[in-house]
């Protein structure tokens, strides 16, 4: 079943504070991702891979084209959806593991990781139990669970971010360099978790500079170079 469909998506940044420079990034992007598939976005740095991921999450504005996600029983166009609909899609339908963790000080790691599941209505106990499993699997020592991850190392923060991304079962999951800054053991664990999610029927879109990981995880790829704006 098709889960994500982009058609005619274009992006141009208008830099008003820098002399009104207009920076076209891409145009005419079409893609489709179905359940059980993992699409790798490829192309050289600057081609707009992260930009496109952020547009699919509604974090960057999409002024041209349509970004359709299967949200419950209907298609929702994130390019034109009301902010409330985007928030609801993020709660129920689309997860996004970015490269950087952005959290409030003072909030415990366990609360951060269990929050997406609680937002989907999973009871507190079950959400915490699942979060503990994920943190254990990703080798975050139990002594750290009650602390804010703000002072954690880069690799630990990335794993907290991943645990949070996998805490809720999103039909669509976006992964921006999920294995970057991980040691060999954790990298393998993350690859396994992503494959499990894919085999369980999630539709995945990712950026993987890690070629070996890309080969194991993805089912097809899309080189954004062909959509580069002139």
């Amino acid at each position: 079943m098709e889960m994500l469909k982009l058609s005619g998506v274009a992006k141009t940044f208008q830099l008003h504070t820098q002399g009104g420079v207009s920076l076209p990034v891409m145009s005419g992007v079409n893609l489709t991702v179905s359940q059980g598939e993992c699409l790798a976005l490829t192309g050289a740095s600057g081609v707009g891979k992260s930009t496109l991921m952020r547009m699919i999450y509604g974090n960057f504005k999409c002024a041209e084209g349509a970004i359709l996600v299967r949200h419950g029983d209907e298609w929702l166009d994130l390019a034109s959806a009301h902010p409330h609909a985007v928030l609801d899609a993020r709660r129920r339908t689309i997860g996004y593991v970015s490269q950087f963790l952005r959290v409030l000080p003072r909030v415990a790691t366990l609360d951060i990781v269990s929050e997406p599941a609680r937002a989907q209505g999973v009871p507190d106990d079950a959400a915490r139990a699942h979060a503990k499993d994920l943190l254990t699997r990703l080798r975050i020592p139990e002594a750290l669970w009650s602390l804010s991850p703000i002072t954690f190392s880069g690799g630990e923060q990335q794993r907290v971010n991943l645990a949070r991304g996998f805490a809720a079962r999103y039909p669509i999951l976006l992964l921006d360099e999920p294995t970057a800054s991980l040691d060999a053991e954790n990298r393998q664990t993350v690859i396994e978790m992503i494959i499990e999610a894919r085999e369980a029927g999630s539709a995945l879109v990712g950026i993987f500079h890690d070629l070996e990981a890309r080969k194991q995880i993805t089912t097809h790829d899309l080189d954004l170079t062909v959509y580069a704006a002139a």
């Binding site: 008003h16 504070t17 952020r54 974090n59 960057f60 504005k61 902010p83």
Partner: peptide, 17 residues
């Protein structure tokens, strides 16, 4: 707009500033 969209991809010249 959506808070993170306005802050991460501001459209109006003043918001960008």
């Amino acid at each position: 707009g959506l808070t993170d969209q306005v802050l991460d991809d501001p459209q109006h010249p003043y918001t960008q500033l």
